[in-house]
Amino acid sequence: MEKSDKKKILIIEDEKEMLLGLSTLLKHNGYSTVAAYDGTFGINLAHKENPDLIILDLGLPAGGGIFVLKSLSNSVSTNGIPILILTAQQEPDLEERLKQMGAAGYFHKPFDPPALLGCIKNILKDA
């Protein structure tokens, strides 16, 4: 497959092991990946790389996940990129709040990898 045919996914996740797992999973399923360990770097990378999809850990330190989500949703150059949220939080009405903030979907950790792949496929198909 030509490099340009591969969809590019930006992963913003502070846990290195999770980043490794996600990168490996996505690469072996035909995606190219770029990674950021913190929110600020993630926002800069989103503007620079213009990915097809962003996977964002809501639990980035110091409330960074929410900040990144709002920042990307409010920016003209990135608000068209679908954002998939990963979270360990189990709060009521979380789905509704994430949608209002611009998320395309979310998964509770620990999630089922095939389910995540299916969701990514659907989002990129519709995008």
């Binding site: 846990e15 999770m18 797992g21 490996t24 999973l25 072996h28 939080q89 999630f111």
Partner: peptide, 25 residues
């Protein structure tokens, strides 16, 4: 809430990496 978050994150990392090994990646 903190403990749940701190436990679920590493669990999730282990799960996805195990899946990758199991799938032959």
């Amino acid at each position: 809430a903190t403990v749940s978050h701190e436990l679920k994150n590493p669990l999730s990392s282990v799960k996805i990496n195990l899946y990758n090994i199991y799938s032959g990646f």
